[in-house]
Design a binder for these strands. Structure first.
Lengths: 256, 256
DNA sequence: ATGATCGAACAAGGATCGTGTTTAATGCGC
DNA sequence: GCGCATTAAACACGATCCTTGTTCGATCAT
């Protein structure tokens, strides 16, 4: 229900202004009041905003990570290309630890037909991989974070620590030579750290824009990464600094 | 794609005869050859049967459990009533271990709005519970069995053993006073056993027809169950024998 | 108390899915 | 190698579902 682009419009508007009235959103989107109301209801159910009489106010803090449902849509084509490149780095028969996040979800889809052992760290990826006849699916325990469905907590870390993987594919919110790999969520960061510790080879996958960002929680220094898969959009200074830390950089084209 | 009742017809026919030609299935269902062909393709993708030129042969052994996709449909109304009764036995705030299977999937749906801590033992139930704002979801590790998506294996048993629950809701394939609770799958049986051991109270939920059946793998004696929720269809002899083992029996109406 | 807002029910429009037909390509048996 | 049945792809029709807009009565805030 509700076309995704209108949802994005609404969420963006509400987040930008802090709060919006139904009338404002009607004018913005051109939809009727009832449609706006139904949209707000759905978005409130996802925890993105809070309803009050006559409008809605944002629940997402300005510096916060935008919700999963919105991030999936953004830059899908680029994520597919990054995912394809990652898939190429992985050989049949390997055991793979697959991080949570929208980019890694695309990696899951790219890996679906292959003969592999995969432990996904989010339920989204797990669902994408059920039905893939050739992959042996291994689920860690843990608590799925709402929306993101990333598995976190002591159960997750224990599940990971009990195993050893050929490759870990790690997504990130920020990645620089100076601060290393960083994430928004503290619990996520702990899981990523465990994942890196349990794998022989670590592939970090990150859009070029992330190579200039730093998020709250430090996961690991750049040197603990084997290979970074990114795109042409990454500033040369950033990639050179990372390469200087001993990391292999692979880039795909930003645009088709 | 494909209406579920025709799928059931096809799978039943193929399983009964061992193999069927496309022409036979056309006559049986009244559908066109192309539709049959598409159905067979879909069913083969689910691993239910094997395609050969001109027809298909069954991959399900005669005494085997019918596949999940078919069992979900059967007796849905009754399952809902059983699930509602189970939900009534559970108080807000409890920690609940929820078994795999189609009946327990309905229990998950019945519990979705409540304030509870739930650890589901199948991905189907887990998916049904994501988005339930009030429930704290706890996932065990393990390998999801294809189709069923029931989590099994050492990771699952370890996850369960690390926790203690107020209530375990257990589904079953067979349940008699003599043989106790039985399951088709050996790995499943081990998980159920761990679940029963980790819970203070054990609620078994089973359609009346299951109270005369016995499946391959023995899970636990009837005495280890606290309460059985079943329906009027259960033979009086069976329920009395179970009651004699010290189990509380609760029944719902078989038909609306 | 009054006005705006909300939620439910109903109706229309569009999109999507399932199904059947046609066509061309493929594979099997002779 | 030939002929036949089977299959896969492409297209078209029909039904169904989803989305949206409207109306109405109920609700809430000023």
């Amino acid at each position: 229900m509700g076309s995704p682009d209108r949802w994005k419009q609404i969420v963006d508007a509400v987040r930008a202004a802090g709060r919006c009235t139904v009338a404002e959103l009607m004018e913005l989107t051109g939809a009727s009041d009832m449609t706006i109301r139904r949209d707000l209801e759905a978005l409130a159910a996802q925890g993105l905003l809070e309803r009050y009489r006559g409008g809605a106010r944002s629940l997402i803090l300005r510096g916060d990570e935008p919700p999963f449902a919105l991030r999936v849509q953004e830059g899908l084509e680029l994520k597919r290309r990054l995912a394809a490149q990652v898939a190429q780095l992985i050989s049949d028969g390997e055991s793979v630890l697959l991080d949570s996040g929208t980019t890694c979800l695309e990696v899951a889809r790219a890996l679906a037909g292959r003969r592999l052992t995969i432990m996904p760290l989010s339920l989204h990826a797990a669902n994408a991989l059920t039905g893939a006849a050739q992959v042996r699916l291994l689920l860690p325990g843990g608590e799925p974070r709402p929306g993101e469905l990333a598995l976190t907590g002591p159960l997750t870390e224990a599940s990971i620590a009990a195993l050893r993987f050929d490759t870990a594919v790690i997504g990130c919110c920020g990645l620089t030579a100076q601060s290393g790999l960083t994430a928004y969520d503290l619990a996520d960061a702990a899981v990523k750290r465990a994942a890196i510790a349990a794998a022989r080879r670590v592939i970090a996958v990150a859009e070029g824009t992330k190579l200039t960002r730093t998020a709250l929680a430090v996961v690991a220094p750049a040197a603990s990464i084997t290979t970074i898969v990114t795109d042409d959009g990454a500033p040369a200074a950033a990639t050179e600094a990372l390469a200087g830390a001993g990391v292999t950089i692979q880039t795909v084209r930003t645009e088709a």
